[in-house]
Design a protein around this nucleic acid. Structure first.
Lengths: 252, 252
DNA sequence: ATCGTTATTCCCGATATGCGGGAATTCTTG
DNA sequence: CAAGAATTCCCGCATATCGGGAATAACGAT
């Protein structure tokens, strides 16, 4: 074979990479061409994915399958963070007057896992399932600032240019000390992703010192004053403290 | 090798089967034992799944990963049915005074893909992602009744005993004619899954004659009269007709 | 229903790939 | 910084995957 690296399994799972928001529907023919796979091999792989429910035939083409939806439900039902946080967030609706985003950290990406929206004008489709880059956005910042040193160093070595581009410093001490300041402050305020929206975030801990996610309280930037931001910051710190406590109570 | 059938890919995907609502967290050790796999092989497979984001390490064990949540979002964002139905359903909230379930048909299973709940006492965690058996429940019944004959025959041959158990007839003509009656009536009323809840459903068509899902309007059984059921039936028929029309308008 | 067309599965020999035992490495944690 | 655990690497052998093409099944239209 030529330009297809990785094992068979990687190639099979790689098929799922084709299915994006922009291209949610693929015919076997199109996949063959795109992947440079032969007909029998591709169909064998499609069958494996279809049998497992990750793909489903839809009128001559394939779409992402029901298993994904079912597995997402399992995650929702079993995630301890989702057992405690949504209720707390619902109680904050009116006080925030914007949008709240609960995020979870997955080693390399930050994922929004729950949204509580009260300002319909914020049309950031910050849905559950949206991923954020680790070095941009308020949610990620609060997480990053609370990662263990060893992990930070690894990240710095692997992503120096991204880190510099995000204004997080060009040297390791700059990076580390900047994050330390955020950690000590206890919250991060950023308008980094959508320029019309500004968010205050704070970390959520699954155990003392072990950051597992963050909460963002966001509002339309042009409508908030300095005082509002201070208020949001205080609120998000207080709220994440409560969520962390509840989370750790669950596990005990 | 012994009792592990299927291809490598099947075995890798099979790992995900372990992760259930009751057992959402697996250590490598536990998986080795359960699957009868050797250490290196298991870890190779875990790595493939983890790299693809379908699993994630969580403190010495593994859980379902962020990719699943992200893919579910893609499905939500790109599903035409979800583009038209939720707004219609939201408009019915007060009129239904119960719970509405939007379901999609996936060849072999019926999956709830959206819920609009207005009666909090119905605690059926009929969440998005819940799967229903094809031969039970109102949602499935309306779909089944509108499947092409060829597919029905195939289903009957493959699942005769389930079909009989569900009271759908012990012979092919019984089965076919029973479903035909439902199809002509245009709706199905059943209290088949949760005995406290009764639901009226009607099919949704992606194209004339091509059933793609169904809508269920459900209420607490002990609170509904015959008249209420008639009303629900009329409402669900009218609503699914509108959803089908909107859906077919989209594609044109 | 019947046929032509397209989509999907099956077959089988050559060969690349996954398997497993164990050692090496990396990650945790005190 | 060291001991223990978790994870990856290594490599020869056996096996499952690949691909070309034919067979079959599903689909659509007459």
């Amino acid at each position: 074979m030529h330009s297809t690296p990785g094992s068979t399994t990687d190639r099979v799972l790689g098929i799922l990479d084709l299915f994006t928001e922009a291209a949610p529907l693929w015919t076997a023919e199109a996949m063959m061409e795109r992947l440079g796979a032969t007909r029998s091999t591709l169909y064998r792989h499609l069958r494996a994915l279809t049998d497992a429910g990750f793909l489903a035939p839809a009128g001559g083409a394939f779409v992402l399958g029901p298993r994904i939806v079912a597995l997402d439900r399992q995650i929702r039902v079993t995630d301890p963070l989702l057992r405690v946080a949504p209720a707390v967030m619902a109680g904050l609706r009116d006080a925030v007057a914007g949008t709240q985003l609960l995020c979870r950290f997955y080693g390399t990406r930050v994922l929004s896992i729950h949204e509580e929206k009260s300002d319909p004008r914020i049309r950031t489709s910050f849905d559950r399932g949206r991923t954020f880059p680790l070095f941009r956005g308020s949610a990620s910042r609060s997480i990053l600032a609370n990662l263990p040193q060893a992990e930070l160093r690894r990240l710095f070595l692997a992503h120096a240019s991204e880190i510099a581009a995000a204004g997080l410093g060009g040297t390791w001490p700059e990076f580390r000390d900047g994050l330390k300041a955020i950690r000590l402050r206890g919250h991060a305020i950023l308008s980094d992703i959508d320029p019309e929206v500004i968010g205050a975030s704070a970390p959520i801990f699954a155990a003392p010192g072990l950051v597992t996610g963050s909460l963002v309280l966001a509002r339309l930037k042009q409508e908030v004053t300095e005082r509002d931001l201070d208020h949001l910051a205080a609120m998000v710190k207080e709220t994440t403290a409560r969520i962390s406590a509840a989370l750790q109570g669950l596990q005990a």
